[in-house]
C-alpha cells in the first residue's frame, strides 16, 4: 500500500498550526497512492493505450503485482533471500562505517597523511563503484562477500568524509575549554572528538545504510544465486514484469523497515541534539 510516500518521516516535524491535521494528512497520502494505483490499473486493464495483453506484458497490472507480492511474502523462500540481502547490507555497513571512522580519525588528526593521500582518496571516490562489481565477484566469489565488498566501498567514503569533517570542525571553544579542564589527549578523544565525529556520522547514517543496501542489491543483480537483487534479476531474465515489480515492492518495504529502525537508533543516540535529524 505504501509504495509512494518515502519522505513521510519528514512531515513529523511539522509545526502544530500545520495546514491539515495528522489524520487528514495521512488520508491525503493514502489517496495519492490509491490514485496512482487506479491510473496504473485503468491504463493496463482497459484498451486505452493499446491491447491490454500487450500493455500488460510491459507494465503488468497493480492487482497482479499485489497478488504476486502477497504470494512471495507468504512463501518462506523469500525470507531466505531477504536474510541474505540483510546480512550483506549489515556487514557492508558495519565494515564500511568502522573503516570510515578509523581512517576519518587518523586523517583528521594527521594533516600530513591527509594531504598526501588527498588526491588518491578523491580519485577512489570519483570512480563509479558499480564497475568494481565484476572484479569483486572474481576476487570474492559469487557469495555474500563480493556484495559486502561493493557495499563497503560505498559506505566507507560517506562515513570517512563525515567523520573527517566532524573531527576537523570540533568547536574550538569547546576544545579549548576541555583542555583548560586538564583533559589529556585521550580524554579529548573520548569526550570531544569522538562524540563530535559520531554526530556527523549519524547525520549521514540514512545515506550510508541506503548505500550499503544499494551495494548489496546491485552486487546480487550482477551475479549471485540468492538475495533480493537476484530475485529481481531472475524475474527480469524471463520477461516476468509482474515478478520484477513485486520484487521492487518487497525491496521498498524492506528499505522502509530498515530506515525506520535507523531513525529509532538515531533518536535514541542523539537525544542531546536540539532537533534530532537536523543539522548536516
Amino acid at each position: 500500500m505504501r509504495a509512494v510516500p518515502r519522505e513521510d518521516d519528514d512531515v513529523d516535524d511539522e509545526p502544530e498550526n500545520a495546514i491539515v491535521s495528522r489524520l487528514g494528512l495521512l488520508a491525503l497520502q493514502i489517496l495519492v497512492g490509491l490514485v496512482g494505483f487506479a491510473i496504473w490499473h485503468v491504463l493496463t486493464v482497459y484498451p486505452i493505450l493499446g491491447a491490454p495483453k500487450q500493455i500488460q506484458f510491459f507494465f503488468s497490472t497493480p492487482v497482479e503485482v499485489l497478488k504476486r507480492t502477497w504470494m512471495e511474502m507468504t512463501n518462506p523462500e523469500i525470507w531466505g533471500h531477504l536474510w541474505i540481502t540483510l546480512q550483506e547490507t549489515v556487514l557492508a555497513f558495519v565494515f564500511g562505517a568502522a573503516g570510515g571512522i578509523a581512517f576519518g580519525f587518523l586523517f583528521a588528526r594527521n594533516a600530513l597523511l591527509a594531504a598526501v593521500f588527498d588526491p588518491y582518496i578523491k580519485a577512489a571516490n570519483a570512480l563509479p563503484r558499480v564497475v568494481l562489481a565484476p572484479i569483486f565477484a572474481l576476487w570474492f566469489g559469487l557469495g555474500i562477500w563480493s556484495k559486502v565488498a561493493l557495499g563497503f566501498t560505498l559506505v566507507f567514503f560517506i562515513v570517512f568524509f563525515n567523520v573527517y569533517q566532524g573531527v576537523r570542525e570540533v568547536s574550538p571553544v569547546v576544545l579549548n575549554n576541555a583542555r583548560m579542564l586538564g583533559m589529556s589527549e585521550r580524554g579529548l578523544l573520548r569526550h570531544v572528538y569522538w562524540p563530535s565525529a559520531l554526530t556527523w556520522m549519524f547525520s549521514s547514517l540514512h545515506t550510508a545504510v541506503g548505500f550499503a543496501l544499494v551495494g548489496a542489491v546491485v552486487g546480487e543483480y550482477l551475479g549471485s544465486s540468492a538475495g533480493l537483487g537476484y530475485k529481481i534479476h531472475e524475474a527480469e531474465s524471463v520477461f516476468d514484469v509482474t515478478g520484477v515489480f513485486a520484487g521492487m515492492l518487497i525491496l521498498t518495504v524492506f528499505v522502509i523497515v530498515i530506515d525506520t529502525i535507523v531513525t529509532l537508533i538515531e533518536n535514541r543516540l542523539l537525544v542531546w541534539r536540539p532537533q534530532a535529524g537536523g543539522q548536516g
Binding site: 571553544v173 575549554n177 569526550h191 562524540p195
Partner: peptide, 20 residues
Amino acid sequence: GLNGRAGYLFQADALMPWKT
C-alpha cells in the same frame, strides 16, 4: 604549555553539547 592551575570561563558556549 597550558596553565594547569587556572580555570577558564569563556565568552562563548563552551559546554559539551552531548553531555548533560
